[in-house]
């Protein structure tokens, strides 16, 4: 049995740093990483209104708890925002976790749904023939509502629960796909590209997914274990398996990939991110072209559904 450097019994071996950690030192180290990520990258400033996107999964609920704790250190406003995509048997199961957490923490919760915003649930969208992958619609719709709703709530930052695994997977996926446009958008900061764009912050991006699960368990944060029924995207699964395999053989792989990306990020951002972004002629939201991806998708769905 191993001991933590403080003398208590270790419950976690952090292979990438060689540390054996007890419950208390482990939890402290996670909160410190979260706080340092915010401080070093100036993600939250005094009097910001942070809107935390929550799903009921462990990442976003840990993020919400940590942001609440951080409020005791300095002054900022905190709200939570949940999107109901309309995925039967999944989102309806995780929503109660969100409601309970917000009630317990005293954080105001705002809810938006695909059905209300667009007229269709994600389940309804996936019934059309000749369609894209469910995650393509969901990703575009969710980003659109998160941005729009955050603005309506009065948010100045949108906090999302992306962890080290999410980030390292996306970096590698964009690199393998040669998607340079997206490649320049996974960093810690965003250029102020559009007046209607609420900057997104990812305070958990340096924390491994496994450590967030352990942190949630130790802190008594209840979360939904389920996986989205649409989540199995073959390419991401391959990249995830590869990174997990590498991490097990060579602990530190995921951190190194993120650190390398972060060092190169100013160059990517300069080279591949447009100076300014257009405005969708229909909905007025930030867009790459004159009609935004969301409006384009809605047109296509309407045509195929006939209503």
């Amino acid at each position: 049995m191993q001991q933590c450097s403080c003398g208590h019994r270790a419950i976690y071996f952090r292979r990438y740093s060689g540390q054996h950690l007890c419950k208390r030192c482990f939890s402290r180290s996670i909160f410190k990483k979260f706080k340092d990520t915010i401080r070093i990258n100036k993600l939250i400033e005094r009097d910001d209104h942070v809107v935390c996107g929550v799903s009921g999964g462990k990442d976003s609920l840990v993020l919400l708890h940590m942001l609440k704790d951080l409020q005791s250190k300095f002054q900022f406003e905190l709200s939570a925002l949940v999107i109901d995509e309309g995925i039967a048997g999944y989102r309806d199961v995780s929503l109660p976790y969100v409601h309970r957490a917000c009630k317990q923490l005293g954080v105001p919760l705002h809810t938006r749904s695909f059905k209300e915003a667009y007229g269709y649930t994600l389940d309804e969208v996936t019934q059309i023939e000749d369609r894209l992958g469910a995650c393509s619609y969901c990703g575009v719709f969710r980003r659109n509502i998160l941005n729009q709703a955050s603005r309506e709530i009065g948010g100045t930052k949108l906090a999302l629960g992306h962890n080290l695994d999410d980030e390292s997977q996306v970096i590698l996926m964009n690199m393998l796909r040669g998607d340079m446009g997206r490649f320049g958008r996974t960093g810690t900061f965003y250029k102020d590209v559009h007046p209607k764009f609420i900057p997104r912050i990812k305070p958990l991006r340096e924390i491994p997914e496994k450590e967030l699960v352990l942190y949630a368990v130790i802190s008594g944060i209840e979360f939904d274990f389920e996986e989205c029924p649409y989540a199995h995207e073959a390419f991401r699964d391959d990249v995830r398996d590869f990174l997990n395999d590498m991490e097990q053989k060579r602990p530190g792989t995921k951190h190194t990939l993120l650190k390398t990306y972060d060092k190169l990020f100013p160059i990517f951002n300069e080279q591949f991110t447009p100076e300014s972004i257009a405005t969708c002629k229909r909905c007025g939201e930030p867009s790459i072209s004159t009609l935004c991806k969301k409006c384009e998708m809605i047109d296509d769905i309407k045509k195929k559904k006939g209503y």
């Binding site: 799903s55 999964g57 462990k58 990442d59 976003s60 995650c135 695994d165 997914e209 496994k210 699960v213 368990v217 979360f223 939904d224 274990f225 389920e226 996986e227 989205c228 649409y230 989540a231 995830r240």
Partner: peptide
């Protein structure tokens, strides 16, 4: 055994 991957 608690799964690390969940959500989506």
């Amino acid at each position: 055994v608690i799964p690390v991957v969940s959500g989506g």
